[in-house]
Amino acid sequence: MAVVFDRPHALVDIPMHYCPGCTHGIAHRLVAEALDELGIEGRTVGISSVGCSYNNYFYFNCDMIQAPHGRAPAVATGVKRSLPDSIVFTYQGDGDLAAIGTAEIVHAAARGENITVIFINNTIYGMTSGQMAPTTLLNQVTTTTPYGRDPKLHGNPIRVCEMLSTLKGPAYIERVSLHDIKHIKKAKEAVRKAFKVQMAGKGFSLVEILSTCPTNWGMNPLEALDRVKNEMIEYYPLGVFAGEDLEV
């Protein structure tokens, strides 16, 4: 019988620890499919960060390094500068990348570091149980904004793609979403393109993936997908922010 659907080789065959309805699993699969299809698993080094995906080194079959909170782009820089022929990616959440790791991501992007960043934006801290993230939307209730995010008290959410695209370093930046099949397919193309940009030596690539956190949003999985579609995309518009015409 012909196999029409299978687990990517780059994804280890063990159960994941993520909550029901969390889109980390889909994002992992998209990365693993890209590694398989581009034939780069054997020369890829992935950098896990701090947050719910801290131990995704159990899930990815390539060599993996667990980095301190926010420092994944610096660790990735160290690896890439040591092994220029390797493919290096970081997998970071919004707290990791856009709060504690802001300096590292901005400077890795500014240097045009030839790495790929998979940036999961779910507008909340998942692992530590639902605190405000730099990407938390205005009025969003979290455990540290129990009366809703108030710009006067907590500032405004950061749009990472827009901010980084003001720099000259990034070769490719795109924001995608995982709220339905059509958008998952687009996300897959973006992840593939990001790795291809790195393979071609074009420089820094980042894909921001709008994701869910049903547990800390207090929603069921379907409500969570609807929130991405109806609330998040309005503030975080999908599209290419750098490298639209880049052919790889």
Partner: peptide, 22 residues
């Protein structure tokens, strides 16, 4: 490779990456 990092924090983490790479 010589690289001037954006901070001491970044520099030691670049060290972490290069050391991880052997």
């Amino acid at each position: 490779v010589f690289l001037q990092a954006e901070s001491e924090v970044a520099a030691i983490n670049m060290v972490y990456g290069a050391a991880s790479a052997g």
